[in-house]
Each structure stands twice: as C-alpha cells, then as structure tokens.
Amino acid sequence: MAEPVLSIRDLRKSFGALKATDGVSLDLRPGEIHALIGPNGAGKTTLIHQIAGGITPDSGEVVFLGEDIGALGVAARARRGLGRSFQISSLAPEFSALRNVMLAVQSRQGSSFRFFRPVMKDRSLTEPAMAMLERTGLAARANVPAAELSHGERRQLEIAIALALGPRAFLLDEPMAGMGPEGSRALTAFLDGLRHEAPILLVEHDMDAVFALADRISVLVYGRVIATGTVDEVRGDAEVRRAYLGERP
C-alpha cells in the first residue's frame, strides 16, 4: 500500500471538560476521498482546524508528506500543500473572485514581498487564476466582488482558491453546505474527478454525496472515531447505526 499523504496519530484536544478530539488517528491515502462524518458537535471542524494549524492539539501528531507539521502555523502548512475550504465561506469580501484566486496563485509562486509590479497586469497571476475560475464554472463572475456573489458561488470560489494552491491534499469542510440539490450534484461530480489530483479529506453532512464519493468513511462521535471503513462496512456497522444513523437495534 502507498504511503499515506496525511496521517494523524492519536490527536487529543480538550476545551475544559469537553474532549473535542479524543485520540483520533486516521490516514489519507493517495487518490482517495476520505469522508469524515458524524453528528453535530462531534468535533469534525475542530479536527480540521488542528490539521490545518488553526488550533494546537494537546497531544498527538499530524504527519503530512512524511513530515511532522505539528509545530507549523496555518500559512506554513498551506504552503506545504494543504488546500482547504471553510465550513462558512471565508473570502476577501472586497476583492473580486479573480483577485481572491490570484492571492492563492501569488502564494504558490513564492514571495509576496514584491512591491512594484501591478498584479492586474501580471499575466502569470491572472491567467492561472482565470483558469481555476473556468474549471469551477465561475469565469463569468470573475470581476464581481466576493461579497456580491451568491452563496453557492462563494462555495465554488472556495474550491477554486484551494485548487489554485496546487495542493497535495484537500481539506474540505462541508463544501456542499447550503447548496441546493442541483449545486450539490454538480459539486459531487466535480469532486469525484478531483481525487486524482490530490486526495480529499471531506467533512460533509450530505449523505448522498458522501456515499457517492467516499472511498473510505470515518465516523466521529464525541471526538472519537468509532468506525473507519468502506461505505458498505460503515453502513453495516452496528455501532455506527446506533450512534449516528439513528437506528434502534
């Protein structure tokens, strides 16, 4: 089996008496979509934050591409190749969609300490950014400020930005949140192809999308992974049914 791209080992995080992450271990292998599901408050977003670097775990390791990235900040981890989208869209609201993506292209190219050349005339920034907008179906809205985009378009823009980083792994926190059924279907098809570019750790509540996309599923309940396996394995797991899918034995 290929080396996992991202590997989390025995991660723990408490907020007071609340164990938000209670000994979580999981792997993200090349080419897979690994879905992370669980009821509200299970600690999914907290886990994503610890992987991305926004929250420091109390103990445990985050190994990415063979390197322990536990001591790195958010920006450094992103530069190593962790491309992420947020549960609630997090964009530069005054900047156009294009400029939001250009920011990621700029970061990928290296230094932001360039003071004189205007970015809008820099085709090494505008062209790759435009290509990402075209891929995500936002090209026609390139010059609209992010604040004026619709909810669904903002979700697409989040993906376009993550793509523009050329990441080695995606952390997508509920990319379908608040999208209509049509948008969800389109995004599902899009993510399906994306796994070959980089594996995806996908937090999602939309079970249709999860069952359609996931190679493996981990179920998080009260900060613990109670099951990991293929779609069928997880569906058939008695504990998962009891704890999450809401069925009585």
Binding site: A52, A76, A78, L91, A92, L103, Q106, R108
Partner: peptide, 13 residues
C-alpha cells in the same frame, strides 16, 4: 479584509 483567508492560502499575515 480576512486574516483567516490570507493564512489559508499560505501567506503569513
């Protein structure tokens, strides 16, 4: 505009 976004694309504010 959004510090979180800047860090998430890999630029330390």
């Amino acid at each position: 505009q959004n510090e979180t976004r800047l860090a998430a694309v890999g630029i330390a504010p």
